[in-house]
Amino acid sequence: MTTEKIKHHLTDELLMAYSAGTLPEAFSLVVATHVSLCDDCRAQLASFDTVGGAVLEECAETAMSAGALEATMARIMQGGPVAKPRKPSGVFPAPLQEYVGGDLGAVKWKPVGMGVRQAILPTSEDASVRLLYIPAGCAVPDHGHRGTELTLVLQGAFLDEDGRFARGDVEVADEELEHTPVADIGEDCICLAATDAPLKFRGLMPRLAQPFLKI
């Protein structure tokens, strides 16, 4: 379901860390969802996997225990797991659907004020990831970041100081970026946003709302 050409991609550092398996689960979900939509990043990821293969190949060997091969053969003979087919891509690509429990219609939104809705997805606690629903033309409060924040657009578009982000585009924000994303006029905007630290809002009201928003 690739429509517009994706302009904003993941960084090499993120792709490499995803390939190495060292990202927090919340970030991995954004990476897997973006890669499902983006052939460029998919190819780049395949290359980092190839580097991983080369690292493995160069690994000094550690001897397996005596009888390891026989033990492994015995486990093989017990039969393999039954693979369950993945859901076809909708508004949400398959990896995201597995966390939501379905496509867009299955999201359990919670209102957070000013028409904005969110749904926090269950992941490990080293970072968090949520779906955000921002009505067309609506602004998310001006905020800076303490850690890294990834925002992937799934529907509609948003604009901020860095440009326009449409379906498949991902914004990688760190501590230097302070921005005020505004949803584009045409359509309500749905994003998948992951962060490894609470956002810091600049105004008083959003700051009061912050514990409630859990962001």
Binding site: S19, A20, G21, P24, E25, S28, L29, V31, A32, T33, V35, S36, R42, L45, A46, D49, T50, G52, G53, A54, V55, L56, E57, R86, S89, P93, A94, P95, L96, E98, Y99, T123, S124
Partner: peptide, 30 residues
């Protein structure tokens, strides 16, 4: 798409995330 070493690496990596980090691994669509 991949050499055997690359493929084995991806299986080992997923096992590492599962058994060592006790996390799930979201995978891109095929």
């Amino acid at each position: 798409r991949a050499s055997v070493a690359t493929w084995v690496f991806t299986i080992a990596r997923n096992k590492k995330i599962d058994a060592l980090r006790k996390q799930k691994r979201p995978e891109p669509e095929d």
